Computed example of a mutant assay.
Amino acid sequence: MPTSQRLPDAVIDAAIVWGVKLNYGEPTQQTRSRFQRWLEADPLHRLAWERVGAFKPAIAPLQAALGRDVLAAADREHRRQDAQRRRALKILSLGGVAALFGWSLRDELGWQRLTAEASTAVGQQRRLQLEDGTAVVLNTDSAVSTDFSGERRVLILRRGEIMVTTGADGAAASKRPFWVFTPFGKMQALGTRFVVRLESQRARISVQEGAVELHPAGGGASLIVRPGQSGWLADDGALAAPEQEFAADGFADGVIAGQNIRLDALLTELARYRRGHISCDPAVAGLRVSGLFHVADTDRALQFLLQTQPVSVSYRTRLWVVVGPASQS
């Protein structure tokens, strides 16, 4: 096959994703096996892999540890201010990671999605059924990986938010403990249904059934969170979290559901499901709203607020919406 042959963009993208997973993630044997199957499925896959690999000599001195540091720096920047994603991509480029794969980062994808086994885009939800019977719902802009190869079941939340309903693990000789790993520590599910959401400096865990034991990354005291309770998991400790204004697991049904929700909190939540930014004028931030707001159509939710609240909704651009006081006429 001539090396000058033009390859489909989808094949090139797939080769780039595999390159990131294998070089900058922590690939399990299961991941390596899937890569081998992909490689052998089509001659174009092997050619794309060879071309992606051709970028490696350009930055041979770059060690894997440096690559991970660059990715971590980009992630911290993304979490600090989501509106500055392009600045995070600049960090990646300066670190040489972009040069390694000729990386286009289409649609400004988070790098965690490239190292994950399953992910969602902004505004998308996805349901997974794991090999042990566990059900996982990924919320908007989320990414997960799994490792069930040893004596415990591990789900790694790399980005975003998930709802987990643990399975019976019936195929195993004995039921293995179920763990969720996050950047801030890990947690053991004690026969349960729960939600884990990554924030900038910590993770929030909300339990609907059973219990979850939180273990901070820094080695502090553990905390057990029970049904109807929430907890914070951070590097330096775990502690109880106050009740949210909306149901933590509502996203699994495609809604933000609650009573007496502050308007600014509702808009912040709606903004997670759309590209761009929603601004809330301080003059209306404290208004209280109740109801079901469908996340699949955030414009419709904004129109509902316009019809039921003393507010105005202005589209400054396709990606910038401003909610302020209703005009006086």
Rank of each mutant, 00 (worst) to 15 (best):
L89I: 08
K175G: 00
S206Q: 05
Q244M: 11
F304K: 12
A60R: 14
D107H: 13
S142L: 09
Q188W: 03
I205Y: 01
R127I: 04
R274A: 07
P43M: 10
Y273A: 04
R152K: 13
V17R: 15
D107N: 14
P282I: 04
T115P: 00
V52T: 13
V313L: 08
Q303W: 01
V20Y: 14
M187G: 02
V11M: 00
V136C: 11
L287R: 06
E117K: 00
E243S: 14
Q5G: 02
T182F: 09
S206V: 07
T165Y: 00
R113D: 06
T166A: 10
R46Q: 15
Q36A: 15
R158E: 14
L198K: 10
V195K: 00
R37Q: 15
Q328P: 03
A135I: 04
G286I: 00
G286K: 09
L66E: 12
R113A: 14
A73K: 06
F194S: 03
I12L: 14
Q208Y: 10
R176V: 04
A221Q: 13
L319H: 12
F178V: 06
A301M: 05
F246P: 04
K90T: 12
P183A: 11
I162Q: 06
R318V: 08
T115A: 15
C280T: 15
L155E: 08
Q29E: 15
L233N: 08
N139R: 08
V20G: 05
W103P: 02
Q30T: 13
I256V: 15
D236K: 13
T146H: 07
R126L: 14
F181C: 02
G96A: 10
L44M: 12
V323D: 01
D264V: 04
K175P: 00
Q36R: 14
D82K: 13
N23M: 07
V212K: 10
G95H: 04
R68C: 07
N23S: 12
L66H: 13
R262N: 10
K21H: 10
L44V: 04
G286C: 03
L190Y: 03
K90C: 01
F35L: 08
V70P: 02
R262F: 04
V207I: 05
D236N: 14
T115G: 03
K186A: 12
E209A: 13
A10F: 03
V321M: 00
R318E: 12
Q84N: 14
L198V: 07
S4Y: 09
L155W: 09
I16N: 00
G254T: 04
D42R: 07
A73D: 10
R76F: 08
R32D: 02
G291D: 05
V144P: 09
P177L: 08
